[in-house]
Amino acid sequence: MSPDSLTFIFINTILANNFVLAMFLGLCPFLGVSGKLNTAIPMGLATMFVMLVSSLSAYGVNLVLVALDIEFLRLISYIAIIASSVQLVEMTLKKYSPTLFRSLGIYLPLITTNCAILGVALFQTFKEYDFGQSLVYASGAGIGFTLAIALMAGLREKLELSTMPSVTQGAALSLMLGGILSLSFMGFAGLGG
């Protein structure tokens, strides 16, 4: 399979190059909102939506930037796009699901500084993906993020019920879990290639 084919990009970004576990992007929500499964999944979905919207807009904006020869403004314009799509998601959620809005709390506006989203926009530009490839890349990254955060939340819910040494409670435990998850995702390396 050629590395440019859509199937390859899709599987590769979900599993082998999972944004959270292999590329270390979007760790703040991964560690912060993964306490409960029923907040983790909406968080994943919201992130995925923002990723799709911002990736598509970034594709369009990049065309303009290249045409006008002002690529040094790329970073600033991408971050502006992301901030406005987050604002959009925030307003939608607040209107249609106030409970969810409250339970996501501070992490909702922080999607803006989720490096996974900026990462998608930047990497698709570096790799010179066309429109279809960018779309697949962004959805793969979003699904991969949701998968990782849901797995983590499931594990942490189980651990709540077990006895742990008092030192390992809190962030250290989450990081160790992340390490083990990341180890197991390394097993996917080379998949689809």
């Binding site: 270390f24 250290a172 990081l175 160790m176 390490g179 990341s182 180890l183 390394m186």
Partner: peptide
């Protein structure tokens, strides 16, 4: 490799 980062910080 990536897992090392998680484990060392942990």
């Amino acid at each position: 490799l990536p897992p090392g980062g998680f484990l060392v910080l942990g």
